[in-house]
Design a protein around this nucleic acid. Structure first.
Length: 880
RNA sequence: AGGCGCGUAGCUCAGUUGGUUAGAGCGCAUCCCUCACACGGAUGAAGUCCGCGGUUCGAGUCCGCGCGCGCCUACCA
């Protein structure tokens, strides 16, 4: 046994164990072992350019707790680390830090090296355009620093990740597998490209998918606009988007709406632009809302898009990709007008404006005399405020528009049932999180748009022929061969072509878009398993056991991953999804950087120890959002200290022992048997909780019993174990202490990996094999102590605790030290309790400093809720 | 507007299939340096289990209706 320090220096110990674990390769996946002995985790790759905050510490600790339990079960752990450096956050960060922009049409420049412009004045920075490959290289330079920060924190926190298994979502392997996935879906006819109105962010100038859209409340203004009816009369339309009046293709009311039934089939004439538009019946018109009749524009909202698709009416697109109104010519299809000159004069005043500016200007024009056909004012009454929900890109600042563009889609709408069935095959923890998945799948209304008009990302491995007329033939894409991946169609040429025919009539052109980042991160299981690259490895890792993640990305990360695994493999990607909650600040809002309420994790580790911080995370139940409460760190640190000191005490008792530590066959004293019996229950509870992924309950069971071990058992057994003589009584104590401590260390090891390993190394570690580290030692089972008898009566431990508390209470009330001797102790109680008490009476009397001669025990009633009535008379004075 | 979850001590949270007198920690109060630990320990005070109604011998727990909070979906005339 090595020298035991008096105090726990957590900083030094943590560092020492980190290095030792690395040296032992304790967390490495063993590729040679079979799948059934392996536990595979689909680790969430953090967005590396995001900030590190306590939320990360929280959820990554949860994964690690489960992993550590499985490792102690003897399983081979595959727990890799991924980095999400693909996509907009990285693109923006790299642009800002290096002062560059990606231009995928530029050739790769092997001599270019990134230079930081951070801290320079804005006017001194000249933006350099670089090729996509140079941009990707620059990204890896910048993200490397961010990854270092994560890795440093993760290591300090004691996450048992396999650092030899890392990937990044923009690296060659990830790009290769993303492109392979796309080509596989092309072969399976699950992907198509289409020129159609799509949700479009005017600032990022890219298409976005349904999952990336969020609704935000906005205040809109109803404009009541008078339309003339061709055969005479008029109608009034209420709209919040008067700037789209020129895009109006029809006016619709509900088929049952008697007010408008006489008008169906007639035509209306729009004010200002004099367009002749049909008046039609449509189910989506709500008679209660507005005036009950509305204008359909291309495109004001998703309903307009839906209705337009089945209407066969032309598109009159006014909103451009930059969000400004595009120039159009009135009098030419589709912008026909009964008065082209007036229409053009009106439109020229709003062309080039943003939608917001055009809205205001349109209202002014509509309020002018003569704006209504044949004289009068088209804008009726006052503008009326209305609360509306408007679709935004989740990262965007201005509302989405529907703009016709060519995009790639994965078919998901026609697979709702199958995807729902896949959700059924996965165990969700907690179970109610599955309803979020179900709701999302039920509510799908668009196929998955996977193309983005950005520069930094995984390109589509596709080219298009360019016809003799110079137009790209999008219906005849040329796909890359799978064995050439990853490719970039901006540099690489399709088979049979060379660079000279790029973008030439009769030649080819590369697809300019990149994939949605989810198209890559939906493949994290396949990236880790090296699907399509290393079949043997794939078989050993796929499907995985567990996907840990948080609940807000069920509709994206979980959903898309399930989609891909089903389409590629007809399998679920993993058998369990484990959902962590959020850390909320005291106002019950999610902690996030933008709200300025994040706490830097490294300081927490310094102050409260890594184990203490892990304790804090482990206290939160699965899937439950938890208020940030720093007082819990203190409790964690207290537990760490307690483990250290209690262990020191136990091992001091063992100091004189020759040879092996006493085995549990020496456990003969009733109190010691009672300790073993308590631990049987604790082992059972902790194990079944962990098997259900409920680490919080597992920890609570271990922690509660450990405190009882310290506060009660150690106090009771102390004086018996102090004895110098080698008696059976003492040997029983030492055996129980040894086994008890060893078991508690194991039960607490997943939560407090550092301090338990430190203590383990003093007494229990072997040179080789699983017992070298507590973290690979076997998780305790009740079978180990099958040979230890139970005490003859129940409640032995509880009876001892109750009597000792009565003795201590008397001393505390008298404001005496707990060592103060007891002159007389009278105990009365029912027979069954007295029998139990008698089994351990000597231990209690020793711990309470009671002379056995001063005790009387009688049959009699005890007060409600107690076993005994106890009278304690203290001695007059403390003996010298 | 639908759905999911939640509402228990000043605070953060446990509370199994309904079953004596509802628990823990923090905080608070009083006390104790004791040969593992004062980075410790002992003892104690503290609750209308959100409200109303119902089922039941019995409800924090089950059912109904409200109220409040969070989230997920839907909602751009």
């Amino acid at each position: 046994m090595s020298e035991i320090p008096k105090r726990y220096d957590h900083t030094a110990a943590e560092q020492r164990w980190r290095e030792q674990w690395d040296q032992w390769k304790l967390h490495s996946w063993d590729e040679s072992r079979p799948r059934e002995e392996t536990f595979v985790v689909d680790t969430p790759p953090p967005t590396v350019s995001g900030s590190l905050h306590v939320g990360h510490v929280f959820s990554y600790t949860h994964q690690d707790l489960l992993v550590r339990f499985q490792r102690m079960q003897g399983l081979n752990i595959a727990y890799p680390m991924g980095w999400d450096d693909n996509g907009l956050p990285t693109e923006r960060r790299v642009q800002n830090v290096l002062g560059i922009r990606c231009n995928p049409h530029l050739p790769f420049d092997p001599d270019w090296t990134p230079t930081k412009v951070e801290g320079m004045k804005k006017k001194d920075i000249t933006i350099t355009e670089v090729s996509r490959q140079n941009f990707i290289d620059a990204c890896s330079v910048i993200t490397e620093e961010d990854e270092k920060a994560f890795e440093h924190l993760w290591r300090r926190l004691g996450l048992s990740l396999d650092w030899d298994e890392q990937y990044a979502t923009i690296d060659d392997l990830s790009r290769r597998i993303s492109q392979l996935s796309y080509l596989d879906l092309v072969e399976k006819d699950q992907v198509y490209n289409l020129d159609s109105p799509t949700m479009w962010d005017i600032d990022f100038q890219t298409a976005v998918a349904q999952a990336e859209v969020e609704d935000r409340p906005q205040q809109g203004l109803f404009h009541d606009i008078r339309f003339a009816v061709e055969d005479g009369g008029e109608l009034s339309v209420a709209t919040t988007r008067p700037e789209l009046l020129g895009a109006c293709i029809a006016v619709v009311a509900h088929p049952d709406d008697e007010r408008y039934q006489p008008l169906f089939g007639k035509y209306a004439i729009t004010p200002l632009f004099g367009a002749r538009v049909p008046i039609l019946a449509a189910d989506h018109a709500d008679p209660e809302k507005g005036t009950g009749i509305l204008m359909v524009c291309t495109f004001g909202d998703a309903m307009d898009v839906e209705w337009w698709k089945q209407s066969r009416l032309p598109v009159k697109q006014l909103i451009g990709r930059n969000g400004r109104l595009v120039p159009v010519v009135f009098g030419q299809a589709p912008f026909d007008s009964v008065n082209p000159e007036a229409a053009q004069a009106a439109y020229d005043q709003i062309a080039g404006l943003t939608a917001k500016q055009a809205k205001k200007k349109s209202a002014e024009l509509l309020a002018e005399e003569g704006s209504f056909p044949g004289g009068g004012v088209a804008l009726a009454g006052d503008l009326r405020p209305t609360d509306q929900m408007v679709k935004f890109y989740e990262k965007g600042d201005r509302p989405l528009e529907f703009v016709p563009t060519r995009q790639w889609f994965i078919k998901i709408l026609e697979h709702k049932e199958a995807l729902m069935a896949q959700g059924e095959k996965i165990q969700w923890h907690p179970a109610h999180m599955k309803t979020r998945y179900d709701h999302w799948v039920e509510g799908l209304n668009q196929d998955w748009c996977i193309s983005r008009q950005r520069y930094f990302g995984v390109p589509f491995p596709v080219w298009y022929p360019v016809g003799a007329d110079g137009e790209s033939v999008f219906d005849e894409p040329i796909f890359a061969a799978k064995d050439t991946l990853p490719i970039d169609p901006q540099y690489d040429c399709p088979p049979g072509f060379d660079e000279s025919s790029r973008d030439q009539a009769g030649g080819f052109t590369g697809d300019p878009d990149v994939m949605d980042t989810w198209a890559t991160s939906s493949l994290t299981p396949q990236i880790q398993s090296h699907w399509g690259v290393d079949d043997a490895r794939h078989e050993k890792l796929f499907p995985m056991d567990v996907r840990p993640q948080s609940h807000e990305i069920i509709r994206t990360w979980a959903f898309y991953t399930i989609v891909k695994a089903w389409m590629h493999h007809d399998q679920v990607p993993w058998h369990h999804v484990v959902i962590s909650g959020w850390i909320l600040d005291p106002d019950r809002k999610k902690m996030s950087k933008s709200k300025g309420n994040v706490v830097t994790p490294e300081n927490l580790l310094d102050e409260w120890t890594a184990d203490g911080v892990r304790y804090w995370a482990a206290r939160a139940r699965l899937g439950t959002d938890t208020a940030y409460d720093p007082s819990v760190f203190k409790v964690g640190k207290r537990l760490v200290n307690k483990v250290f000191n209690a262990s020191r005490f136990v091992l001091m008792q063992l100091e004189g022992v020759e040879g092996d530590l006493p085995g549990f066959e020496h456990i003969t004293e009733p109190l010691d048997m009672a300790l073993v019996d308590r631990l049987r229950m604790t082992i059972t509870q902790a194990t079944s909780a962990f098997e259900a992924f409920d680490y919080a309950t597992a920890m609570q069971a271990a922690e509660d019993d450990f405190w009882k071990f310290c506060d009660h058992y150690l106090e009771l057994v102390k004086l018996r174990s102090y004895s110098e003589e080698d008696t059976a009584e003492r040997r029983s104590a030492l055996a129980a202490l040894t086994w008890g401590l060893k078991t508690f260390l194991k039960l607490l090891a997943p939560f407090l990996p550092y301090v338990t390993e430190e203590v383990w190394s003093w007494a229990f570690a072997s040179k080789e094999g699983r017992d070298r580290s507590v973290h690979t030692s076997a998780w305790p089972t009740v079978d180990e102590v099958a040979g230890v008898d139970r005490p003859d009566y129940d409640g032995v431990f509880e009876a001892a605790v109750e009597l000792l508390a009565a003795i201590r209470g008397a001393k505390t009330k008298a404001q005496k030290s707990l060592r103060w001797p007891v002159a007389r102790l009278e105990i009365t109680g029912p027979e069954v309790d007295r029998k139990a008490l008698e089994l351990i009476l000597n231990d209690v009397l020793r711990a309470g400093h009671v002379d056995p001669e001063a005790v009387s025990i009688d049959n009699g009633p005890s007060p409600e809720g107690t076993r005994f009535a106890v009278t304690v008379d203290l001695a007059e004075a403390m003996p010298e």
